[in-house]
């Protein structure tokens, strides 16, 4: 019996500062909401075991700082992600507007193998708050143009819809892992030349 690898799903939560990334992660993993969370500095992660279609997988959920300037750190944490969760605050329009940038930045920095089909999930958080500034319709419209990205409206405070959202995230991450990591093909991908290092070794080309 060949041993089966333990499955680890890496999930990265992104979105503007204060949209509730840390709160969502803690609500999902620890089932509690606290007013004591500080603004995230650097990065942290929590793990949670989930069962999807009879398979137990470990979700490693990464939470990073929301201020755009700290994104340069991202490279170290984005790499190898199986799913990216984008979060905005349904009461703060600017957090919705910046979603495109977060998504693009993630794709650039994580450089997944198949960026077109890399799974993202969108969460509209603080569902419990009034007044709303971004309607579900508008968020869904945005998702439609993005490969039909799944969309959930959550509240880290009340916990509503959090479980469902993360289950979908886990499923997407698992599907992603199955599709790209071919368990049996250990032959490394070809590394393409970068534009600067052409193998132009012929003597008749110039020397620099």
């Amino acid at each position: 019996m060949a041993s089966r690898k333990k499955i680890l799903l890496k999930v990265v939560i992104l979105g503007e500062s204060s949209v509730g990334k840390t709160s969502l992660m803690n609500q999902y993993v620890n089932r509690k909401f606290s007013n004591q969370y500080k603004a995230t500095i650097g990065a942290d992660f929590l793990t949670k075991e989930v069962t999807i279609d009879d398979r137990t997988v470990t979700m490693q959920i990464w939470d990073t700082a929301g201020q755009e300037r700290f994104q340069s750190l991202g490279v170290a944490f984005y790499r190898g992600a199986d799913c990216c969760v984008l979060v905005f605050d349904v009461t703060a329009p600017s957090t919705f507007k910046s979603l495109d940038s977060w998504r693009d930045e993630f794709l650039i920095q994580a450089s997944p193998r198949d960026p077109e089909n890399f799974p993202f999930v969108l969460l509209g958080n603080k569902d419990d708050l009034e007044p709303r500034a971004i309607s579900a319709k508008r968020a869904q419209q945005w998702c439609q143009n993005k490969n039909n990205m799944p969309y959930f409206e959550t509240s880290a405070k009340s916990g509503s819809n959090v479980e469902q959202a993360f289950l979908a995230i886990a499923k997407n991450a698992l599907a992603q892992q199955n599709s790209t990591v071919d368990l049996y093909n250990e032959f490394p991908d070809q590394i393409k030349l970068t534009n600067t290092q052409k193998p132009s070794g012929s003597g008749d080309s110039c020397s620099c």
């Binding site: 503007e16 201020q67 755009e68 329009p93 600017s94 957090t95 507007k97 910046s98 940038s101 977060w102």
Partner: peptide, 10 residues
């Protein structure tokens, strides 16, 4: 209405 719904981050 769209005025100054500026993108805070970017």
């Amino acid at each position: 209405i769209q005025r100054d719904l500026s993108n805070e981050v970017f």
